[in-house]
């Protein structure tokens, strides 16, 4: 792979969660997460709530400062070698809550034009650009440009958020559950828009979602997270057809089948995900894993290579590697 456009190196983020002194507790939201993004690819990120996918996204766009670890943009360390302002115009984010992420006192034209003016574009140029972008995302600027956030539907607001992210001509867009709050028929429209924009502008996406069907549809590679760590990462076809981590297998088996003749007969996992405040020792998944064996509770597994670009953090695969 040539220089990745964006890469995360050993990102760690712990949040304080009550207690004092030695008894202070931490939510280990993101624990030693590393990955690379090639230019033009889409990385899907899946996992249950509390697995750290949103924290990871916020670290990636530098909305949160990591406790340790670095983000590199085209090989440069963000913050140290690349100023944040320059980085922000290259890497943008779209959030799940389309209403909360728009200023309620700004018209849609102003919301989209705001970023470029801050970055030095003249007001008239920025407004013209905003009009073009609104038009591109499927909102007639003469009809919707003067409206406020509460005067739009959820799908329309999310289109504005996408237009706003595009206003900087970014290379990378991090989409944090950007279509999850939308109704299915509207979600399909927004997915189509995202796929069109990706092709037109050669965009790179980090697509975070809990919906495995959507992730499969839009992604080139998929990363599975569990309790702040990467359980498995690999190309979409091999990860879905031959998952190598028991957690990925469970996630896939837990998808409702769309075939009335082949309904799910058994739940793949029992119980809820453990509390990230006190994650289990060793492999974090061993308390729910059906294939747990001796080393799982003692030692955290390393990322084992199970394919050319396919890695899984599970002891089962180390055994496989040794046998082979």
């Amino acid at each position: 792979m040539s220089t990745p456009i964006l890469s995360a190196h050993n990102l760690v983020k712990h949040f304080k969660a009550g207690g004092f002194g030695a008894a202070r507790k931490f939510v280990r939201a993101v624990n030693d997460v590393s990955f690379e993004l090639a230019s033009g690819e889409t990385l899907g990120v899946v996992g249950e709530s509390g697995c750290g996918k949103s924290t990871m996204a916020r670290l990636l766009v530098q909305l949160l400062t990591p406790d340790s670890g670095e983000v590199h943009y085209q090989g440069k360390v963000v913050g140290r070698e690349l100023p944040l302002k320059a980085f922000r115009s290259k890497v943008q984010m779209v959030f799940q809550d389309s209403f909360a992420s728009l200023n309620p006192r700004m018209t849609m034209i102003d919301a989209v034009a705001f970023g470029p003016t801050v970055h030095g574009m003249s007001r008239s140029d920025a407004t013209r650009k905003a009009q073009d972008l609104l038009d591109r995302v499927g909102l007639d600027p003469s009809r919707f440009g003067g409206r406020y956030a509460h005067e739009l539907s959820g799908g329309q607001r999310q289109r504005v958020n996408i237009a706003r992210a595009l206003a900087f001509d970014p290379q990378v867009i991090v989409l944090d559950e950007a279509v999850s709050a939308l109704d299915k028929s509207v979600e399909a429209q927004v997915l189509n828009l995202l796929m069109d924009l990706r092709r037109e502008r050669g965009l790179t996406y980090v697509f975070i979602s809990h919906d495995l069907n959507v992730v499969r549809h839009i992604s080139d590679r998929v990363m599975v997270m569990y309790l702040g760590e990467v359980a498995e990462i690999g190309p979409v076809e091999s990860l879905y057809s031959a998952p190598c981590h028991p957690y990925t297998q469970a996630l896939l088996a837990a998808m409702p089948s769309l075939d009335p003749d082949r309904r799910t007969m058994e739940a793949p996992l029992a119980g809820d995900p453990p509390n990230p405040i006190d994650p289990p020792q060793g492999c974090r998944f061993h308390t729910r894993c059906s294939r747990v064996f001796a080393p799982c509770s003692a030692q955290a597994p390393a990322q084992h290579k199970v394919g050319k670009t396919h890695f899984a953090a599970c002891h089962l695969n180390s055994a496989k590697e040794h046998v082979a």
């Binding site: 539907s153 799908g155 329309q156 109704d183 299915k184 028929s185 509207v186 979600e187 399909a188 429209q189 997915l191 189509n192 796929m195 069109d196 069907n213 959507v214 499969r216 549809h217 839009i218 979409v236 769309l258």
Partner: peptide, 24 residues
């Protein structure tokens, strides 16, 4: 039919979805 298409029933990955336009 539109709902089924939006749920990616039988859709080939990466292809445009047969989405219902507009909103209710």
């Amino acid at each position: 039919k539109g709902l089924l298409a939006a749920n990616l029933v039988g859709a080939a990955p990466g292809t445009r979805l047969d989405a219902v336009p507009g909103a209710p």
